[in-house]
Structures are given as C-alpha cells and as structure tokens.
C-alpha cells in the first residue's frame, strides 16, 4: 500500500472531488449514486443558465434542467464520449430550450435533430443560443470550477476584490484574512496566477 492511503481524509476527499468527467460517467454507469450527484452538482448551474439566458422564466428553465438530466439518465449507457459530457449537456439543454422558445412563438418543434441544427445555425448573432454565447457560458463554468479548487485564502481575496459590489479595499481584504495591507497586491497576483494555472491544465 502506498503511503498515500495514510494521508488524511481531506486529501482522499479532494481527490475524489476532482474526478474527471469521463470517470464520473463511468462510475454512474456502474450505478454509483454519489457520482451521479457529483455530475448534477457540477453541471446544474451551467445547464440552468442556458434557458435563463434565452429569456425563459425560472420555472420553465427548471423544467429544462430536469428534462436534460432525465435524457442523460436515459442515454447514460449510449454516450460515445463520456469525457465530452459538458458539451453533450450544453447541446441537449440548447435544443430543449430552442424547442420551448419556438413553440412559444406558435411554431411546432422541429421533428429531427438535423432540422433543429439547421434552424439553430440560422440564428442571428445576438441570440443567446448562438454558439459564441454558449461558449462564454461554458468558459464561465470552467472559471467557477477552477475558483473552487483554489485554497480558501485565495478564494476570499479574489471574491472580495472582484466579485463583491462594491469591490472591497485592500485594507478590508487584509483585515479579513489577517495580513498586512501591503501583502494583498502580491497575494492577489499570486492567486490569479494559480487560477490561470488551474485553467490551463
């Protein structure tokens, strides 16, 4: 047995949290409930954001989220590329959203996936469902995921400086984490570098 098994539970836990998408899908196929829950937790916000961006109310967006995970559940054993589950979820949520948007305009939903693809390819640039807008949502998902992997101190520093409105001053951040105010600027830069590194791996 390697000494790794003697490391503390947190390390085992964090390693388990970092299971990649392919490993999660494979674990789901073996009936691992915790892997399924991890998958739902990992992607619920991204999936929910797609119908919301398209202007659907919360209740309809929630229905689309549920339908998307139901479809995943039904097709779990057929997915050819388990490592591409993020793209699969985005595409599925996009199609379901487009189906609702379209029917609300009085049109029937397209009969086939190809028909749907053709319609979506003709969406105007400003549409929240064009590829570019969805790529931004996926990138935001990746940044959120990377932020979660940072140590607590970095999370606090970056959140206080960049994610609170109004942004906190260096003095306020320094007080919150118990260091001198002059340390904040280099710490901030180091945390951003760490975030960049996580995103590049």
């Amino acid at each position: 047995m390697t000494t790794a098994s003697e490391k503390n539970e947190d390390q085992l836990h964090s390693r388990s949290l970092e299971r990649d998408d392919a490993a999660l899908v494979k674990a789901c196929r073996r009936g691992d409930q915790s892997a399924w829950e991890e998958l739902v937790d990992r992607y619920q916000r991204l999936v929910f954001a797609i119908p919301r961006r398209a202007g659907l109310p919360e209740s309809e967006a929630a229905d689309i989220l549920q339908e998307t995970f139901l479809t995943l559940f039904q097709k779990l054993d057929e997915l050819e590329k388990p490592g591409k589950i993020r793209s699969w979820l985005v595409t599925t949520a996009k199609f379901k959203t487009w189906g609702v948007v379209r029917s609300e305009k009085g049109h029937h939903a397209p009969a086939t996936e190809q028909e749907m693809e053709l319609e979506m390819a003709s969406l105007e640039d400003g549409s929240p469902l064009v590829e570019e807008a969805l790529v931004t949502l996926e990138e935001q998902h990746l940044v959120r995921t990377a932020l979660k992997k940072l140590e607590e101190r970095c999370k606090t520093i970056l959140s206080m400086i960049y994610l609170t409105e109004p942004s906190k001053t260096y003095a306020e951040v320094a007080e919150a984490i118990g260091v001198g105010a002059t340390s904040i600027s280099p710490l901030r830069a180091r945390c951003l570098k760490k975030l960049e590194k996580i995103l590049s791996t």
């Binding site: 916000r45 954001a49 919301r52 967006a61 990138e139 959120r144 975030l195 960049e196």
Partner: peptide, 13 residues
C-alpha cells in the same frame, strides 16, 4: 478570466 468571472451572472437552479 477576470472578465468571465465578473460577467458571470448565472445562479444555482
């Protein structure tokens, strides 16, 4: 990355 962070208005389902 910062722009993506700051424009992320998504919320939990």
């Amino acid at each position: 990355i910062l722009r993506l962070m700051q424009t992320d208005d998504s919320v939990d389902a």
